[in-house]
């Protein structure tokens, strides 16, 4: 592997609009149930003030992908650029990957009885385009980045957020910028 592509999500900018989630569905015209990308709300109680705070997560294209390790039919491969690609034709729908992934990102499609997930729009990337979710993000909260030392040393870049599994398990290729809270004049 020569590099590791991944996502940088900025909760300071994200308004939880779910545009990324729908842009993904629009690009691939997926069925309703599988959510290759999903926006999650951060818990109010984990922060000093109650605000609406979010992060958006698709497959994290982990450095140590558990899905790849457990797949009995080798449906998962990891590209040179770090993208973990799922081969839908090989998949037998056994769902071992669903149990293995700490982030619940492989998605079972009940209509096709197979798993599917974000392949980081590698065909778009190979053409020099941004992933559909990144291209659609109006507040520019979601970015495609190279996960490396320089990124991790940038101020405010976090490896995890409250409530997420430890990144030590799979070394996910996602980084976060946490939410920023302003001053509030409240009635409670």
């Amino acid at each position: 592997m020569t590099k590791q592509l991944g996502f940088l999500h900025n909760s300071e900018k994200c308004v939880g609009c779910q545009g990324c989630e729908m842009a993904c569905k629009n690009e691939y015209q997926t069925d309703a149930a599988p959510r290759w990308r999903q926006v999650f709300q951060l818990r109010e109680e984990d922060y000093s003030l109650p605000t609406r705070m979010f992060f958006s997560m698709a497959c994290n294209h982990c450095a140590n992908p558990e899905c790849l390790r457990v797949c009995p039919v080798k449906a998962y491969t990891k590209r040179e650029d770090g993208i973990v690609v799922h081969d839908h034709d090989r998949c037998i729908g056994c769902r071992l990957c669903l149990m293995a992934c700490p982030y619940d990102r492989p998605q079972f499609n009940p209509a096709q009885k197979k798993v599917e997930k974000c392949n980081l729009c590698y065909q778009r990337i190979d053409k020099g385009e941004k992933p559909a979710c990144v291209a659609a993000c109006i507040p520019e909260a979601l970015q495609l980045v190279e996960i490396n030392e320089a990124l991790d040393q940038r101020m405010g870049v976090l490896k995890t957020l409250p409530g997420l599994p430890s990144p030590d398990i799979t070394q996910p290729a996602i980084r976060f910028i946490g939410p920023k809270q302003g001053k509030q004049i409240r009635r409670d």
């Binding site: 605000t51 509030q184 409240r186």
Partner: peptide, 22 residues
């Protein structure tokens, strides 16, 4: 950015100052 709203909306959550008015 100041947001005045009885509800702490997604927009209000981004404000420098949020005022939860009656």
């Amino acid at each position: 950015l100041v947001v005045i709203d009885p509800v702490l909306t997604s927009t209000a959550s981004k404000a420098d100052l949020y005022i939860q008015i009656n």
